[in-house]
């Protein structure tokens, strides 16, 4: 009984507030002190969907998130494999400390310094600059997820596979299959973190992503448009997470290769 009570409380406090977004997105006239809008309209939805800025922001947000995740995964894949089976404990600690640093260092400080490097490289005000700065922000999540997966796999599997005549490519493919749940978790986190970035695209690239497009409506107080953008922003994060889970992990959830 207590568990169901807590379930109800959690649903009320943590999930029900999202209903306000849905209501506000369709609200026409909604003056104090009405609990529900006096009139309903789909005008805000049509304004957003028909906007060229929205389409380009959506494409930019998704593109940056996918590219960042792909780059981070490739880098972390070889790093995780090396670290998991490394005997050099001291070096492993140093590498992990540097790689996990973005979790404990406020992101704005390295961002300022990196911006200078990007200006010199000519990558400032470009999508590549945004991707280059966002990759380090997602690395801790991807690396940690891969290391968690690799910890469950014996280091001797490679010797066994090699003894049975498996090529390097076949070994990597087998490992990929074994690590699918970890890869899905790491990539899901990376997609959400890069999708949620507001300061990086604004500061580094002057790129208009969904949060950058949404901010003036939030601060300016246009309730309906702000709600539509907030819903798109939230649903986008969920969709990216689910896409990573379905595409990488496959349909057999929880299966182990």
């Amino acid at each position: 009984m207590l568990r169901w009570g807590v379930f109800g409380l959690v649903a009320f406090v943590f999930v029900a507030p999202l209903g306000v977004l849905v209501i506000a997105s369709g609200a026409g006239v909604w003056v104090w002190p009405s609990v529900l809008p006096q009139s309903w309209t789909g005008g805000a939805w049509w304004t957003v969907i028909a906007s060229d800025a929205f389409v380009s922001a959506l494409v930019a947000s998704v593109g940056i998130a996918v590219a960042v995740t792909a780059f981070a995964f490739v880098l972390c894949w070889y790093a995780a494999f090396g670290l998991a089976h490394s005997d050099a404990r001291g070096m492993r600690t140093i590498v992990l400390a540097v790689c996990y640093a973005p979790l404990v260092v406020p992101p704005f400080l390295p961002l300022i310094g990196t911006h200078r490097w990007l200006i010199r490289l000519g990558w400032s005000d470009s999508v590549w600059g945004v991707i280059a700065v966002t990759v380090p922000l997602v690395v801790p999540y991807v690396l940690h997820a891969l290391l968690l997966g690799l910890d469950t796999i014996s280091a001797q599997w490679r010797d066994v596979a090699r003894m049975l005549g498996a090529s390097v490519f076949a070994q990597q493919r087998t490992l990929l299959a074994m690590l699918r749940p970890s890869i899905a978790l790491g990539c899901g986190c990376a997609l959400i973190v890069s999708w949620s970035q507001y300061v990086v695209p604004l500061t580094i690239g002057q790129i208009v992503t969904i949060p950058v497009l949404m901010m003036p409506y939030i601060v300016g107080g246009d309730r309906a448009l702000g709600a539509v953008y907030a819903l798109v922003y939230t649903c986008g994060a969920c969709a990216l997470w689910l896409s990573a889970d379905v595409l990488i992990r496959g349909r057999k959830r929880g299966s182990r290769a």
Binding site: C76, V95, V98, A101
Partner: peptide, 12 residues
């Protein structure tokens, strides 16, 4: 070995 993490270490 840990050298596999060199590109990542360089970036980070």
């Amino acid at each position: 070995k840990w050298q596999g993490s060199s590109p990542l270490l360089l970036l980070m």
